[in-house]
């Protein structure tokens, strides 16, 4: 009985330390509100399809809700855990679609911003399309790593843990991929 309390209190404390809040349905809602943007951006960088992105994000959080009881803050921070699920869901999606990363050239990103003028949005849309087109030229692992770096606050060690590679591998790959991306965008 005492051990059960210890485990529970420990879990509660750990959840809080890693950013989790409370338990039960409230924790999931907090995770959803806090990391929706990060997950959406990660998915978008990987698949660049607005119409499918929401469906994939929905799949990510549905899976997260199912597995929330097994989430262990000792193994990974909440954001890293969600990005890990996102990675697997996107991989499944790409496998199902059986197509490589593509850029829908007729799609226009309409990034809403209270501060942006129509000219700002047009310029940003063009930059983003250029960025996505350049991302498409990278290798799959390079794109996965950069998607995590762009979309989340994960450190290299967390990215390495999510991808099952070494931290130095992530650092080197990210550095090379960034250089390539910058070069593609200059062309």
């Amino acid at each position: 009985m005492c051990n059960g309390f210890l485990v529970f209190a420990y879990t509660l404390v750990k959840c809080k330390m890693k950013g989790g809040v409370g338990i039960g349905a409230f924790s999931f809602e907090y995770a959803y509100d806090t990391y929706y943007k990060n997950v959406y951006n990660y998915v978008s960088f990987r698949i660049n399809n607005h119409f499918d992105a929401e469906e994939i994000v929905s799949g990510v959080f549905e899976k997260a809700y199912t597995k929330f009881g097994t989430y262990s803050p000792e193994r990974a921070g909440l954001e890293a855990w969600l990005i890990g699920i996102s990675k697997n869901v996107v991989t499944d999606y790409l496998r199902r679609k059986k197509r490589r990363f593509f850029v829908p050239l007729d799609e226009i990103f309409n990034l809403r911003s209270e501060d942006a003028t129509p000219d700002d949005i047009a310029v940003r849309n063009e930059e983003n399309r250029g960025l996505i087109a350049a991302m498409a030229k990278l290798g799959d692992r390079e794109r996965q790593i950069l998607s995590m770096k762009f979309a989340s606050g994960l450190k290299n060690v967390e990215i390495a843990d999510t991808m099952g590679v070494s931290e130095s591998n992530v650092g080197v790959t990210a550095h090379r991929a960034l250089k390539k991306l910058m070069k593609y965008l200059e062309e």
């Binding site: 943007k37 951006n41 978008s44 992105a53 929401e54 960025l131 762009f150």
Partner: peptide, 20 residues
């Protein structure tokens, strides 16, 4: 690149949560 935010396009954030 980190400032790029595609999630502004998302129109069904609340509906997705309620559905789940």
């Amino acid at each position: 690149c980190r400032q790029v935010d595609f999630s502004a396009e998302s129109e069904h954030k609340r509906e997705i949560l309620e559905k789940i």
